[in-house]
């Protein structure tokens, strides 16, 4: 596909030229950078290592109306929301884009989820390669990387003064066409600089995990005492899961205001005790130990068993933001040493 470039100072102009699309990009609001619909191109920032809240919310919003209806009477006339608007996402990190390729397997499993699929279909993803990975990034261990192209339609590289843009799919090429003449064409030099940058960035990644054998081993460790060294300090909050680009669990609730009502789904997390609480009062995962075990096992064992992909992209958010330093890589390393026999005894 094509190679393009533009001066970094012209970023706002390039974003402005995407007027055929609804543009979503990292915007600073209240001291944090987060993906949002861009109303003013000047507000778009590229000064971030990664957003606190992952862009999974673009395909799977925190709260999403499934359909609306009126209360009263017996006839339900559900009104399904309109199809998603055509949009361009600018500045998504490769790990977060790769996460879409993982969760879309689940969203198309027994039932193709129209909400997720519509959005994914209508979205053109412009990636933003990492030059400075953060302390807890480990994307190469999971098949990604600072310049990974998985799931992306095009990818941008920050080469100092210029931005180099490489298109990867027809959708990516279409977006470039829609931009008109804002972009210049790039050549060998930029491609080489980008490749060098990616290589250097990979060299800066300090953490890694060998995933070999984990998927088979984890289910044997259910109930193993080794979980307690982590779960004993778990707060049962939703940080690790809500900030995870591949966590996809949701709760469905009906809400009404007067006679107007809606059925909506919202993010839910297996770390809350209410998550697995049965109506009878029984909770199959009564303590933080079972919940911690479930979170890790789901990512590294159950999901790969069902979908042939580990539900983790190595973005490091769960490690970065955990208030009590529960470190996913630490858990995985220790799980390798844990003996399945002790789990049976426990």
């Amino acid at each position: 596909m094509g190679d393009y470039k533009f001066a970094k100072t012209k970023l706002a102009e390039v974003i402005g030229a995407m007027s055929d699309y609804q543009v979503v990009a990292p915007v600073e609001s209240g001291e944090v950078v987060r993906f949002a619909v861009v109303d003013d191109p000047a507000k778009v920032t590229l000064e971030f290592s990664n957003t606190n809240v992952p862009p999974k919310e673009l395909m799977f919003p925190e709260t999403e109306t499934l359909f609306r209806f009126r209360l009263g009477g017996t006839d339900l006339e559900p009104e399904v929301p309109d199809a998603a608007a055509r949009r361009a996402v600018f500045g998504i990190r490769p790990c977060d884009a790769m996460a879409y390729t993982i969760v879309e397997k689940l969203y198309n499993w027994d039932f193709p989820d129209p909400y997720f699929n519509n959005r994914r279909e209508a979205t053109t993803l412009v990636g933003y390669a990492c030059a400075e990975p953060c302390a807890n990034c480990f994307c190469p261990s999971l098949g990604g990387g600072p310049g990974s192209e998985k799931g992306l339609d095009s990818i941008a590289f920050d080469l100092g003064d210029t931005m180099y843009l490489k298109t990867l799919t027809d959708k990516g090429e279409e977006l470039v066409k829609a931009l008109g003449g804002v972009l210049e064409s790039a050549g060998e030099a930029e491609a080489r600089a980008a490749a060098k940058q990616v290589e250097e960035a990979e060299g800066k990644i300090r953490r890694s995990i060998d995933t070999e054998g984990i998927a088979e081993h984890l289910p044997e460790l259910y109930g193993h005492p080794f979980w307690e060294q982590f779960s004993d300090r778990c707060l049962s909050c939703g940080i690790c899961t809500f900030l995870c680009p591949t966590c996809h669990c949701f709760d469905i609730q009906d809400e009404s205001e007067g006679l107007d009502a809606r059925r909506a789904r919202m993010w839910d997390t297996c770390m809350f005790s209410e998550y697995s609480l049965h109506a009878s009062g029984h909770n199959p995962r009564p303590t933080r130990k079972e919940r911690t075990c479930n979170r890790v096992s789901h990512k590294y064992s159950f999901f790969p068993t069902n979908f042939d992909a580990i539900a983790c992209v190595g973005c490091g958010r769960c490690i970065n933001y955990c208030p009590v330093n529960i470190d996913l890589l630490d858990i995985l390393e220790k799980s390798k040493q844990a003996d399945a026999k002790e789990a049976q005894d426990a």
Binding site: G30, R34, E62, L235, G238, L243, P323
Partner: peptide, 27 residues
């Protein structure tokens, strides 16, 4: 601006040594 950022992970509640109700009003 501040509240609209909230993702309701309830970390602030769970970490609080004074928030120890078995059943919380928000859930």
């Amino acid at each position: 601006e501040q509240f609209s950022k909230c993702i309701r992970c309830y970390s602030c509640r769970n970490v609080c040594p004074m928030c120890y109700c078995v059943e919380c009003v928000v859930t």
